[in-house]
Amino acid sequence: MADSTNGNSAATISITVEFTGGLEILFSNEREHTITLPARLSDGSQPTISYLLQHLVEHVMKDDRKGLFIMEDNVRPGILVLINDADWELEGEENYELQQGDNIVFVSTLHGG
């Protein structure tokens, strides 16, 4: 069947999420995570980076220091978000709709020298 909405297993997409620049400390010291998200949200829309942020904070991040990752429902200043090796600002920022196989990298800026 071409229609995948049948059955009780809802369609999902799988993406890789990476943390560098020290952010991995907030995520169990793992740099790379494979994240599975529903292909469609309950309102029929596709999951976006905003949705991913919420998902990461609620389900993946065990560290209490949420403020080192998000501020005012967005990534905190000093973190770059990269969508398939490009600055997310080239791709629509938090409204970018995630695709199967996407690679999302969160980079904290370093300041040492």
Binding site: M71, P77, G78, S108, T109
Partner: peptide, 11 residues
């Protein structure tokens, strides 16, 4: 980086 990182996140 239009906004600086929070000071306590700078190592």
């Amino acid at each position: 980086f239009p906004k600086p990182p929070p000071a306590d996140s700078v190592v």
